[in-house]
Simulated assay, not measured.
Amino acid sequence: MSGTRLPQTPAWWFDGSAPPLWARAVSTLYGAAVALRRWAYRRGLLRRHHPGVPVIVVGNLVAGGSGKTPLTVAVVERLRAAGWTPGVASRGYGRADASTPRWVEPGMDAASAGDEPLLIARATGAKVRVDRDRVVAARALAAAGCDIVVCDDGLQHYRLMRDVEIEVQDVRRRYGNSLLLPAGPLREPLERAADCALRVVNLGVADAATSDAAQMTGEWPMRLGIGDVRPLLGGRGLPLAAFAGQRVHAVAGIGEPERFFAMLRGAGIAVVPHAFPDHHLYTPADFEFGSRLPILMTEKDAVKCAAFADAQTFMVPVEAVLPDAFWDALLERLPARDT
C-alpha cells in the first residue's frame, strides 16, 4: 500500500473557490446554533464551572491541526519552571473507549489514552486526565495536587471557565475563506478570536526574519525546533540532516500532514508521502509500502506504532519555540501563585 489515504479537506475552504449552496445553507444553521449557545452561556442560562485553580486553554478556531500539542507541551514545561504544578486536561480524541475517563500514564497504549494525551504525558511527565467533560477532568487534576490546569484544545468547551485562552493558527492556512463549517473551516465566527488573550501563529520551521515579521502584526510567532531523529526501537538519535539526499517514506496522521512533509523536504530529503486521517490507529498493513526505505513519522504517530516498528522506523520530534516576551505575557495574566 502507498500514497495518500487522508480524506480530503473541502477544496473551497482554502483555494478561493465558492462553496456549494448546500454547504452555505448548513453553515447558516450551524452559525445560528453557535450564536445561540454562546448567548446562553453569556446570559447564565447554561452554567459554567471553575475547578478552583487557574485554567489555560490552548485551542483554535479552525478545524484541523495548527500546532496545539507542541505548544501545550511547551506551556506545561514553562509553568513548571515558574514554580507551578501543571496538569493537562484533554478529551482524548481517537480513544477506543472515549466515554471512559482515565489517568494517562506514559506506559499506556494510544488506543486507551489517545495519541496526543499520551505524547504529552511522555514528553512532560505531568499528570494528564482524559475525559469528555473537561470540567470533571480539571477538578480531578486539582484534587490530585495540580495547582494549574492546561487544556489541550477545548476553546469551544464553554462549561469550563478559564483564566487565559491561547489561540493557535497555522501561518499558511490561517482562517481559509473565513466561513463557518461546512462552508469554511471555522468552528466559530472570526470575532471570537478577539476574546483570546494571546494569539500564536505556527510558522513551522522558519527563520528569525519571518518570526519578527509575524510578531509585528500583533501575533506571537511560534517556530518548530527539530530534535534528533530517534529510532522507535530505541538507540542513539541522528540529526535530521543525516537523511538529506535520501528517499524516505514519510508518515503523518495529523491535522495537516503536508506541514510535516514540507519540513522534511526543506531538510533536503526526498519524501514519499503517506498521509493518514488525524488520530488514525495504525496497523502493520498500513506500512506495506512496496519499497524498503527508511520511515520517518511524527511523534504523535510514533506513540501508536512502536509495537510493530522495525530498525528502519524513526520519529522526528519537534518543540515549540516562542519569544521570551510571550512567556512573560502569559505568566502576567495568571493570578498570583499560592506558596
Rank of each mutant, 00 (worst) to 15 (best):
R5L: 15
M1Q: 15
E319R: 09
R122W: 01
D133R: 04
R129Y: 08
R37G: 12
A325M: 12
Q246W: 00
R129C: 15
N177I: 15
G234T: 04
L118Y: 02
E256S: 03
A193Q: 11
V34S: 02
R132P: 03
T69C: 11
L21P: 12
D207R: 03
G64P: 13
G184M: 07
F260L: 06
P185K: 04
R187I: 12
P106N: 03
A32Y: 07
T100G: 07
V171Q: 15
P239M: 04
D212C: 09
G64V: 04
G237E: 02
C151H: 07
L179Q: 14
T72S: 06
S27T: 03
V88K: 01
W220C: 03
Q8V: 14
T100F: 10
A267H: 06
D286P: 06
V34A: 07
V104T: 05
R259L: 00
F276G: 08
Q312P: 00
I254Y: 07
G268V: 01
C196S: 14
L160M: 10
K300L: 14
R223I: 11
V316T: 04
V272E: 14
Q246C: 08
R333E: 12
P335D: 09
H49Y: 15
L190H: 05
A209P: 02
R192T: 11
L141P: 00
A32S: 09
A302G: 08
A23W: 03
G290E: 06
R5A: 15
Q215I: 12
F276W: 04
V128L: 09
M222P: 08
A270Q: 06
E219P: 02
K127L: 15
G154W: 05
P20W: 00
L198M: 12
R159C: 14
R230L: 15
V34P: 07
V271S: 05
A242W: 09
S90I: 02
E332N: 11
S90K: 06
R173I: 13
P106I: 01
D170W: 02
H50I: 05
E165T: 12
A32G: 07
A33V: 13
D310Y: 10
P7A: 10
A96Q: 13
Y30F: 14
V321K: 08
